[in-house]
Simulated scan of single mutants.
Amino acid sequence: MSGDHHDPCAVNSLIETPSCSPVEGRVVWDPAHSLWNGGMLAGALVLGPLTISPGAVAVFVATTGGAILLGHSVGFHRRLIHGSFKCPLWLEHVLVWIGTVVGMSGPFWMIRTHDLRDWAQRQSDCHDYLAHRRPILIDAVWQMHCRLELTHPPGFDLGKIGRDRFYRFLERTWMLQQVPIAGGLYLMGGWGFVIWGVCARVSASVIGHWFVGHLAHRRGPQSWLVEGAGVQAHDVPWAALPTMGEAWHNNHHAFPGSARIGLYPGQSDWGWRFIQLLETAGLAWDVRTPETMGARKVLTPAKP
């Protein structure tokens, strides 16, 4: 798969084309994601208070945390995008399906969006959209309701991932994947479970992903600086638990191919703990960490 690239720090799916640039472009409305994100938020805000119950809140907490841990953090980010560990294909499919039902988009969109931003931030400069430079409200509208159309974009090659029939199916039907979830929740607890287990969960995941991403490129602690990168990352310590370790974003910029993101004492990383559990069970192997990746010459320690 494209994630199994020989360079553990590579941007795996992106291909630099002649004259491609991350700077020039325009931000345009993305109707599909905008209506989806807006509809989920409206459902949560309008119907959430009318259907709240201890059971519904418990469903929200369990499904949100479980989907972010298994799907978004381990399935999408650490396995599919970075290939930081290997596992059986059936397990990868399960984890990526869970990542899809987080509700942000399909696997191909997630890979391209991540890799474009990753590549752009490593350049000396990039568009404000890719750097989260604009004020928080503008950035919120841009990231959750718009897309960037670069004047000279790079190319993409998803490799085996792009040819996988299951992933192609998920990409076409990512919104519809909420239907079986909603049906099961309705049978368990009625409309309250549906509103809190689908609308509130998806909305919290989308907004939380944007908000932590915004902060992680604006302010916060740093251990490392990446030489030549126009955008440096920061850690967001308070978000380590709800993001399952993804909020140690400065560590991730320093060692993007590592399955472990919380690298230092006191840095909670449940995604890493789950991968360790898989490894113990014989379901994960070739697990990469900074110790196994070798020295990265572009890193310098950040000043306190």
Rank of each mutant, 00 (worst) to 15 (best):
S258Y: 04
V206R: 03
P256K: 08
A247T: 10
Q222H: 08
V236E: 01
H253F: 12
H253G: 13
G213Q: 05
A229I: 11
W238I: 15
F211C: 13
I207L: 15
H217I: 00
T243K: 05
V212N: 04
A200F: 12
G197P: 05
V212F: 07
E246M: 12
A200H: 11
P242I: 13
N251L: 09
F255E: 02
F211M: 14
V202P: 09
H252D: 04
N250W: 01
S258P: 03
H252C: 07
V226Y: 03
T243S: 14
I207S: 12
I207M: 14
A240H: 08
W238C: 11
V206E: 01
A247C: 13
A204W: 10
L215A: 08
A229F: 11
G197Q: 02
G230D: 05
A200K: 10
A216E: 00
A254V: 07
N250K: 08
H234M: 02
S203K: 10
W248H: 11
V202D: 06
R218D: 00
C199E: 11
P242G: 12
A229P: 04
A254N: 05
V231K: 01
P221G: 08
N250M: 03
P256T: 11
H252F: 05
A254F: 02
C199R: 05
W210H: 08
H217W: 03
V202F: 05
E227I: 06
S258W: 02
W224F: 12
P256C: 09
G230H: 07
S205H: 14
H253V: 06
H252A: 03
S203W: 14
V198Q: 10
H214Q: 12
H217A: 03
V206C: 07
L225R: 15
H217C: 06
G213E: 02
G197Y: 02
G257I: 01
D235S: 14
V202C: 09
A216P: 00
A229G: 09
S258D: 03
S205L: 15
G245M: 08
R218V: 00
G257D: 01
N251K: 13
H209N: 13
A247G: 12
V198E: 11
G197M: 02
L215P: 02
V236G: 01
H214D: 09
E227V: 08
A239N: 07
G197I: 02
G228S: 14
G230V: 03
G257M: 04
H209Y: 14
